[in-house]
Amino acid sequence: MQDKKKTILAEIQKKREKMIDLAQEKGLTNNDTIKCSQELDQLIYQYQSSFRKNRRQRGEIKRKRNLKYMLLWSRIAVTS
């Protein structure tokens, strides 16, 4: 899994550099620049999703959500 994350990070860096070059060469509103930006967004989403998947597998998201509800209910109980 770490290798996949490193690969995605490398792809993100290459895509970011390409987008910057396109923006400087053709402008921010050029179709090629916009397409490259959208591809970069997809890569970033993939990278973030891999973290969520790992956290979900370890149960961290569920624990965090439970803590949030406990804090919410404790506030409600105090104000009631």
Rank of each mutant, 00 (worst) to 15 (best):
G59N: 10
K18C: 03
M1R: 09
R56I: 05
Y69N: 03
K15N: 08
R58P: 01
T7G: 14
A77S: 08
S80W: 02
A23M: 14
S37Y: 08
T33V: 06
D32C: 07
T79K: 14
N66G: 01
Q46H: 13
K26L: 14
K62P: 01
S50Y: 02
R75F: 01
E25Y: 02
K35F: 04
T29N: 12
S49F: 02
I76L: 10
N30V: 05
D32L: 14
K4S: 10
T33F: 04
I34M: 10
L71Q: 03
Q42L: 15
K68L: 03
I8F: 06
E17R: 12
K4Q: 15
E39F: 05
D32T: 12
R16V: 06
S74D: 03
C36E: 06
A77K: 10
K68W: 00
R52L: 11
K5P: 01
I20H: 12
R56G: 01
E17F: 03
K15P: 03
E11T: 06
L22S: 07
R65A: 07
K15A: 13
T7L: 15
E17K: 13
G59W: 04
G59K: 08
Q57P: 00
K53N: 04
K18Y: 02
M1G: 11
Q2D: 12
A77Q: 10
N66E: 12
G59L: 05
L28W: 10
R58Q: 13
D41F: 05
N31H: 12
Y47R: 06
K62N: 08
K6Q: 14
S37R: 15
Q57S: 04
M70E: 03
T33D: 05
L9M: 13
A10K: 15
K18G: 01
R65M: 09
K4Y: 09
E39C: 09
N66R: 11
K64A: 09
K35R: 12
